[in-house]
Amino acid sequence: METTEQFYNEFKPLLFSLAYRMLGSAMDAEDIVHEVFLTLRNIETEPISNMRAYLCKIVTNRCIDRLRSSSKKREVYVGPWLPEPIVTDGRDAGDPMQSYLAKESITTAYLLLLQQLSWVERAVFLLREVLQYDYDEIAEIVGKTSTNCRQIFHRAKRSIGGKHAMLAQGEGAEQSDGKRLAGEASRVIDQFVEALQSGNIGKLMSVLAADSTLFSDGGGKVTAAVRPIVGAERIALFLAGIMAKATSGFSFKVAVVNNQPGIVTYEDGKPSSVVSFLVEEGSIAAIYIVVNPDKLLHVH
């Protein structure tokens, strides 16, 4: 008979991935997964025939409870809200958690797309589209009928349109195509960094789509643009202005942010922002900058 520790090692990456995509917060996702396994350890139950479905149900319900309790905070959030970034250096292949997440659809753009869905829609969509549960299993997890879940799924899919398939970098993607897209993104980000370092406005604009958008999440805690900045020229001037004000303690590194090339900036060795991108057709379509210190606690 498997122990709680064995279940933890087996299912933690899956459950974290589910909770993170539901909440957009790595810290909250970790807390929920930890709580679920503590609960599992402390209760005596009849043998559970499908532990994976059982744990997914508990995690999903706790995520919905967390979202309900934090909905008021989201309503009064200052400026754009962005998900808490997951930053790696790309060398964590030996870590089961990182190996699992490397195959998952957790890009910033994808997470923001999921935020357009209601809590129940998001749960049904993830359980069906990503975890491949059948509607009877989903119905048991979310407390709806199978027919209702089928309707919710199709409504959610219509709501976010076909863009989710393009943004998802999951296991279903062709490996060669995934490598090509990753290589293209890396090349564009390298050009972006080079232009930013040199202060070349023209070169910076050349890697930005004409209608690109920059989102900056300070959460009202630090200075950030409270409205999205739209247009290549406005974004280039905004970023050049930030670089012109950089202190002697400023530094940065290229990192893997939510499975995509990104940037981490530092002030006197302490993380000050995490930057991720949406690259489409060889240009940067969106830039996401997280400067809210509460969302940088896991960044090194």
Results as ranks from 00 to 15, higher is better:
Y54D: 05
L55K: 00
L55H: 03
N61L: 03
I64K: 07
R66C: 00
S69E: 14
S70M: 13
S71T: 06
K72D: 15
K73G: 05
R74F: 15
R74V: 14
E75Y: 04
E75T: 07
V78M: 08
G79M: 03
P83F: 05
E84R: 04
P85H: 05
V87A: 09
A93R: 15
D95W: 07
A102H: 11
K103F: 05
I106R: 04
T107K: 12
T108M: 07
A109I: 01
Y110E: 05
L111Y: 00
Q116M: 09
V120G: 02
V124D: 06
F125G: 02
L127Q: 12
R128P: 03
R128K: 14
V130I: 14
L131F: 15
Q132M: 09
Q132C: 12
D136H: 06
D136W: 00
A139E: 02
A139N: 10
E140C: 04
G143N: 06
S146L: 01
T147I: 13
N148P: 00
R150I: 10
Q151F: 10
Q151Y: 08
Q151D: 12
I152R: 08
F153E: 03
R155D: 13
R158K: 11
S159R: 14
G161N: 01
K163G: 03
H164K: 11
A165S: 13
M166E: 12
M166Y: 14
M166V: 13
L167I: 09
L167F: 10
G170Y: 02
E171C: 11
S176A: 15
D177Y: 13
K179I: 06
R180F: 15
L181P: 00
E184Q: 07
A185P: 05
R187Q: 15
R187N: 14
V188H: 11
V188C: 09
